[in-house]
Amino acid sequence: WEITFERNGKRITVRTTDHRLLELFEKLWRNGADERELERLAEEINR
Rank of each mutant, 00 (worst) to 15 (best):
W1C: 11
W1F: 12
W1V: 12
W1D: 08
W1T: 06
W1R: 06
W1K: 06
W1L: 10
E2Y: 05
E2T: 02
E2F: 05
E2D: 08
E2V: 05
I3S: 07
I3C: 08
I3D: 02
I3N: 06
I3T: 06
I3E: 09
T4Q: 07
T4I: 13
T4G: 03
T4Y: 05
T4P: 01
T4M: 09
T4H: 13
F5D: 00
F5K: 02
F5T: 01
F5S: 00
F5Q: 00
F5Y: 12
F5G: 00
F5I: 13
F5E: 00
F5L: 12
E6L: 04
E6T: 05
E6F: 04
E6N: 03
E6W: 03
E6R: 01
E6V: 10
E6I: 10
R7M: 13
R7L: 14
R7P: 02
R7E: 04
N8V: 02
N8T: 04
N8M: 06
N8W: 02
N8L: 05
G9C: 05
G9E: 05
G9V: 00
G9L: 02
G9S: 04
K10H: 12
K10A: 10
K10E: 06
K10I: 14
K10L: 14
K10D: 03
K10Y: 06
K10Q: 11
K10R: 12
R11P: 06
R11E: 08
R11M: 11
R11A: 13
R11K: 15
I12E: 00
I12W: 06
I12D: 00
I12L: 06
T13M: 06
T13E: 03
T13H: 07
T13C: 05
V14R: 00
V14M: 04
V14Q: 00
V14T: 00
V14W: 00
V14A: 01
V14F: 03
V14P: 00
V14E: 00
V14G: 00
R15E: 02
R15Q: 07
R15H: 07
R15Y: 07
R15C: 03
R15P: 01
R15M: 05
T16A: 10
T16P: 02
T16I: 10
T16L: 08
T16N: 05
T17Q: 11
T17D: 11
T17E: 09
T17G: 10
T17L: 08
T17M: 09
D18K: 03
D18N: 11
H19C: 11
H19V: 14
H19P: 13
R20D: 12
R20G: 12
R20N: 13
R20Y: 13
R20L: 12
R20H: 13
R20W: 10
R20P: 05
L21Q: 09
L21K: 08
L21C: 07
L21F: 07
L21W: 10
L21R: 03
L22W: 06
L22A: 08
L22V: 11
L22E: 01
L22S: 02
L22I: 13
L22R: 05
E23A: 11
E23K: 09
E23S: 08
E23Y: 04
E23V: 10
E23I: 08
L24P: 00
L24F: 12
L24H: 10
L24M: 12
L24T: 09
L24K: 12
L24W: 14
F25D: 00
F25S: 00
F25H: 00
F25T: 00
F25K: 00
F25G: 00
F25V: 02
F25M: 06
F25N: 00
E26D: 09
E26I: 13
E26T: 06
E26H: 05
E26N: 05
K27C: 15
K27D: 15
K27P: 02
K27I: 14
K27Q: 15
L28P: 00
L28F: 11
L28S: 08
L28D: 03
L28I: 10
L28R: 07
L28G: 02
L28T: 04
L28N: 07
W29P: 03
W29K: 04
W29N: 04
W29A: 09
W29S: 05
W29G: 05
W29I: 15
W29L: 12
W29R: 04
R30L: 15
R30G: 13
R30T: 11
R30F: 14
R30E: 15
R30W: 14
R30A: 15
N31A: 11
N31H: 09
N31Q: 13
G32Q: 07
G32A: 06
G32F: 05
G32V: 03
A33Q: 05
A33N: 05
A33E: 09
A33C: 12
A33I: 09
D34W: 15
D34R: 02
D34C: 06
D34E: 09
D34I: 15
D34K: 03
D34M: 15
D34S: 12
D34L: 15
E35N: 07
E35F: 15
E35A: 11
E35L: 15
E35K: 03
E35I: 15
E35P: 10
R36W: 14
R36V: 15
R36I: 15
R36M: 15
R36E: 14
R36Y: 15
E37D: 14
E37Q: 11
E37Y: 11
L38Y: 03
L38A: 01
L38P: 00
L38N: 00
L38G: 01
L38H: 01
L38D: 00
L38F: 03
L38T: 01
L38W: 11
L38R: 01
E39M: 12
E39A: 10
E39Y: 05
E39C: 07
E39F: 04
E39L: 11
R40M: 12
R40L: 13
R40W: 09
R40G: 08
R40S: 11
R40A: 10
R40H: 12
R40C: 12
R40Y: 08
L41T: 04
L41I: 09
L41P: 00
A42I: 10
A42V: 09
A42H: 03
A42Q: 03
A42S: 05
A42W: 08
A42R: 02
E43A: 11
E43D: 13
E43K: 08
E43T: 09
E43Y: 02
E43N: 12
E43M: 09
E43S: 09
E44R: 11
E44V: 14
E44T: 11
E44Q: 13
E44G: 05
E44A: 14
I45H: 03
I45P: 01
I45L: 06
I45T: 02
N46V: 09
N46F: 07
N46Y: 05
N46W: 05
N46C: 07
R47H: 10
R47V: 09
R47E: 08
R47Y: 05
R47F: 07
R47G: 14
R47W: 05
R47Q: 13
R47I: 10
R47C: 08
